[in-house]
Design a protein around this nucleic acid. Structure first.
Length: 832
RNA sequence: GCGAAAGUGGCGGAAUUGGUAUACGCGCUAGACUUAGGAUCUAGUCCCGAGCGAUCGGGUUGGGGGUUCGAGUCCCCCCUUUCGCACCA
């Protein structure tokens, strides 16, 4: 007889059984109620999952099993976000085809999920790299193209002149190509965009209707959308016979605009420097700025660098001629790519004005008697604090106070004079979906010499990725060299045409996958709207904070597009969002505690851990490690705490026989109380996602039962009942060992099919309680008293305590505050 | 710089609504058992002081102030840390 806890055989047995019985499978049409949970769409990257990754899935599975025991057959599907750059890199570096590499990785990951004991509805499995899936990316693209939501424009890419290929941002290391080290340049290419900016306002407003989302994520999205109200103002340029439009949030400072600054990329730049004697120098400077990778240009307070164009514009408010400059600190794609510089009220403009010796003119002046700010840009740098100053020398606005009201007045005045209009600008840019890569969804367009860009007709979808491709990492997109793919017929005129070789950003795949899970094999449509409206939006989405912005914003955008197309009846795809914190661990490499990752060499392999202590141990520890929304440091030593706990539970099963048939005393009511208290605490903890306190409560119940067995204070029946409850409550965290012990206890039904226990309030009450006695708020004694005792009795019992008397000596009790069932506080007044 | 969150034993952390601070676990200490192990069990473990002792007294949730019979929790000021954003006009 072996009473050593050995999880290996037990876990294999139950994993096998869950697989065979397809326990997580949900019939979407007949399910009585709906609850749709979702884990992030994982990328099969080829690196084995480590225990840090496990947190997401283990958390989800604990929730799934918990719901299941509440009678909810939740839908928990899993699929693969299978396109992407690493597959292509693997092909280049190791000569494995991205397709084969990806599917090999998927197989490995599925096995890892299995070993964690995670239940997914695999009948709904999808992989975004299959034509059955990506044809609907193409279909959606065509619908968006029809409605002007997809369009093409020039945009810069990172270009390695030596490899003659496009690089992703992460392939550019300090301005150089990661492979060959050549200096990377910015090159303009015609690329496809989705018009997410049309939805900026709706995406922003929608955040207010998401109480189930973490504030942090909503704040990040608001920040990313970056809405700011202001005005567009026209500054006439007499020499060119046209005017320049700038965007400003501070039209009220227009009288202080002493020069204009354009981004070097601005379309008017060439015209403005045409007559400049230093034109050549300026042109090469422009090229230099443009070739600076965006990350460097925007990064860490890069020095301001500019050139005067030699031209002037007219400030429409003052009628003055002001110089026009080009400078790197003005971004080409925010606002109009041009600003009116007000150095007196803008810190950046001030720096630049001082550097170049440009004039500074104040609009707002401190009020009489108000201390003047430290420097001349003091006022105005803190917009939104009205009353910081008054306008002077700007008729007809003199005397107005800084604030939103004044700004509105200026906008009205500018509109009236016909030199501008109120305008809202967004930081959000349109979504660039073009990738010059093989391993992605081909964009369904062909280019015909006669007809131009022509969409591929719907009946010709999918445009399939060819399998036979050569991967060199050089000479651009491998697809360009596949003649059978590139050479096409124009759908309109049947003439010779060239197929688009750009593929789509993988965020397109992940922005609607949750809908495809509902009808994964439907070859006739993107998804089944009736099922989508029944099962979506997602009740609970669980994933990492790293997707707070891009993925979640794109998915919200696409959901609205589908809504506007009449395909779904809701605008928000994810009702409740939970972001689990990352698992960190000390890294030998860097000497710091960091996010667990392969590159930092601080991962812990679940395979080794499971071999040594079992998946249940990993699960319990992962849930016990701390509040799931916070970062948590993995401790190799602390894992043994979980292992010991499960071992104690395991051995307890045999010790149940030691309990006496009949309780020797009334003290077994205490065990019953502990059992109900545990039910209550675990349930409350689970509802709040506080799995760590749920585990703690179960450890306490285990300790209580262990004590009862040791001291033989409870009958066998009571001990068995307590043990069964422990197994039920522990099941979501440690499914294998609990099922096994449950079965060995002789139950026929599996634990997963039992219903979650409920606590009885009556069982939580004690007849006699310990009442804490405080004197002036300080704990002095505890007295035993009837639970239902009133203030009179409580006070009498408190006064009966010698310790309390001692502390009351020389004082009299002015009043007593009773918290029923908890404490009594005697407040003294010094005796006269 | 802006925004958000958080500071509790040697460590991870607990404490729905203001009501016994430090649950649970790790580590550590002592002991038991043992054909030595990363096994199991028992007891102890916030700090200071007194006592042979069961105990007793005092202090403690980053610092300071306030509200309250009572504050880890609420309010004000300060300090520190982490995360996110950052030439966004």
């Amino acid at each position: 007889m072996n009473n050593q806890y050995d999880p290996k055989a037990v876990e294999a047995k139950w994993q096998d059984r869950w697989d065979k019985q397809r326990v997580a499978e949900v019939d979407l049409r007949s399910a009585a109620d709906k609850y749709y949970m979702l884990m992030m769409f994982p990328y099969p990257s080829g690196d084995r999952l480590h225990v840090g990754h496990g947190r997401n899935y283990i958390l989800g599975d604990a929730l799934f099993r918990y719901l299941r025991m509440h009678g909810k057959k939740a839908l928990n599907p899993m699929g693969w976000d299978a396109f992407g750059l690493p597959a292509e890199n693997a092909a280049i570096q190791r000569g494995v085809h991205p397709h084969d590499w990806t599917f090999a990785n998927i197989k490995v990951m599925k096995e890892q999920f299995r070993r964690w004991g995670i239940l997914y509805d695999w009948s709904k499995e999808i992989a975004s790299c299959t034509p059955e899936y990506y044809r609907w990316n193409q279909w959606l693209f065509l619908r968006m193209l029809e409605r002007g939501l997809a369009y093409k424009k020039k945009a810069p890419v990172n270009w390695c002149p030596s490899c003659r290929t496009v690089l992703a941002n992460e392939q550019v290391i300090e301005g150089a190509c990661e492979r060959c080290g050549a200096a990377v340049v910015q090159r303009d290419l015609e690329q496809w965009f989705l018009r997410i900016t049309d939805y900026a306002d709706r995406l922003l407003a929608g955040l207010d209707g998401l109480p189930g989302w973490p504030e942090k994520v909503k704040a990040m999205q608001r920040n990313w959308i970056g809405r700011s109200e202001g005005a567009e103002i026209e500054f006439p340029i007499p020499a060119l016979g046209q005017s320049l439009t700038v965007f400003t949030t501070r039209p009220d400072t227009i009288h202080g605009a002493t020069f204009l600054v354009l981004a070097p990329e601005h379309t008017l730049a060439a015209g403005l420097i045409a007559g400049n004697p230093e034109r050549q120098e300026i042109e090469s400077w422009i090229v230099k700025v443009r070739n600076t990778p965006r990350i460097l240009r925007e990064g860490e307070a890069a020095a301001k660098d500019g050139r005067a164009t030699g031209q002037t514009a007219i400030n429409p408010a003052t009628g003055e001629k002001i110089p026009i400059w080009l400078a790197n600190y003005v971004l080409p794609d925010y606002g109009t790519g041009a600003i009116m510089a007000v150095p007196a009220h803008d810190a950046r403009d001030l720096v630049f004005a001082r550097q170049e010796g440009l004039p500074v003119r104040r609009v707002y002046h401190p009020e009489e008697g108000v201390e003047e700010g430290a420097d001349e840009a003091g006022s105005g740098s803190a917009l939104g604090e009205p009353g910081r100053g008054l306008i002077r020398n700007a008729p007809p606005f003199d005397g107005l106070r800084e604030g939103a009201e004044t700004i509105r007045g200026f906008i009205a005045w500018i509109e009236q004079r016909g030199c501008g209009r109120g305008k809202v600008a967004y930081r959000l840019r349109d979504w660039l979906i073009s990738r010059q890569r093989y391993w992605g969804t081909p964009i369904p367009v062909v280019y015909c010499e006669r007809c131009g860009a022509v969409p591929v007709p719907e009946q010709e979808l999918p445009v399939e990725l060819p399998y036979d491709v050569e991967f060199t990492g050089r000479e651009g997109n491998p697809l360009e060299h596949v003649a059978a793919f590139v050479e096409a017929r124009c759908p309109r005129c049947s003439g010779a045409a060239r197929r688009e070789t750009d593929t789509m950003d993988t965020f397109v795949d992940s922005s609607w996958y949750y809908l495809r899970f509902l009808s994964p094999r439907d070859g006739s449509r993107m998804f089944d709207s009736a099922l989508a409206n029944r099962w979506a939006p997602i009740d609970q989405y669980i994933g990492g904070i790293e997707h707070a912005i891009l993925h979640l914003l794109y998915a919200r955008f696409i959901c609205r597009v589908l809504h506007d197309f009449g395909m779904v009846g809701f605008e928000e795809p994810f009702t409740d969002l939970f972001n689990q914190g990352m698992i960190t661990r000390y890294s030998e490499k860097t000497g710091r505690i960091e996010k667990m990752s392969k590159s930092r060499g601080n991962t812990v392999s679940p395979d080794d851990l499971i071999d040594a202590m079992g998946a249940d141990t990993e699960r319990v520890y992962t849930l016990f490690i701390g509040p799931p929304e916070k970062e948590a440091e993995w401790s190799d030593e602390a894992v043994t705490g979980a292992y010991r706990f499960l071992g104690r539970v395991w051995r307890m099963a045999e010790r149940l026989a030691e309990a006496p048939a009949i309780a020797p005393s009334l003290s077994e009511a205490e065990l019953e109380r502990e059992r109900h208290a545990a039910i209550q605490r675990v349930t409350q903890s689970m509802e709040r996602f506080h799995f760590h306190t749920a585990v703690a409560a179960l450890m306490e119940l285990g300790n209580a039962l262990s004590r009862a067995l040791e001291e033989k204070t409870a009958s066998r029946l009571r001990c068995e009942e307590t043990f069964d409850t422990l197994l039920q409550l522990l099941h979501p965290m440690a499914p294998h060992v609990t099922e096994e012990l449950w079965e060995r206890r002789g139950h026929v039904e599996t634990l997963l099919d039992t219903s979650w226990p409920e606590h009885e309030a009556a069982k939580l009450r004690r007849a006699r309680i310990e009442l804490v006695v405080q004197v002036d708020g300080k704990l002095r004694d505890r007295v035993e008293i009837d639970a239902g005792a009133g203030e009179k009795e409580a006070r009498a019992a408190a006064m009966a305590s010698p310790k309390v008397r001692e502390h009351l000596a020389g004082s009299e009790v002015a009043k007593a505050v009773l918290v029923p069932g908890r404490l009594i506080n005697l407040v003294t007044r010094r005796s006269a």
